[in-house]
Amino acid sequence: MKELASIAWWKWACAGLLIYTVVGGLLLEVPRLPILNESIRNLYFHVPMWFGMIILLTVSAVYSIRTLLKYNPLDDLKAQNSVHVALLLGILGIVTGMLWAKYTWGAYWSNDPKQNAAAIGLLIYFAYMILRGSFADEQLRARISAVYNVLAFALFIPLIFILPRLTDSLHPGNGGNPGFNSYDLDARMRLVFYPAVIAWTLIGWWLVDLMNRVHVLNNEEVEA
């Protein structure tokens, strides 16, 4: 019991929010829309994957900038693990998106601009992991992959937020329309959607935290 109290408060908050998301996401009212029907509830599970991924990538970019300003192996480690978990969320996002698309848009992959951009974004970050693996020297690895990570982030944001809006997309809020408001993300859905985003982001950060600590324990030179 005393041990459980040593778990950080935000981890308990994360657990509570996730449970709320599951219960609220399945039981609370949603708009009745054709084609989407009950599958509109996927918004509570598919979209938070992407939000979580983007938040973790932002965190990673910040740690990479810190690495470049003043070298600290721990910052580099955090940047790496954030990308790692962000990729996990991104893969889950793309797979759940494909499944949802099959039953609402008619095909797993319809070369939708946002689908394509997300796939390219994932490839850019896969390349980051490969790049990291190709250095023997720690400082060199930290610096070069930090530069790459900042550039990757600067490319990822327009790729996923700006380019799909310039053309027609099956995704809601694209093709000139601003954000979510054009969609039926009404007040009832926000009540579950935002907690879901926080819950999944925190789960992601929890995993990053665990990975960081495993690496620190594994490596005698990195001091927490």
Partner: peptide, 23 residues
């Protein structure tokens, strides 16, 4: 809802378990 809850609770318990081990 019950199935979703059991799976979420299981995964969360496992996360807490790993966290305590690391500690």
């Amino acid at each position: 809802v019950g199935v979703f809850l059991l799976i979420s609770a299981g995964i969360l318990t496992y996360l807490i378990f790993i966290d305590l081990r690391l500690k």
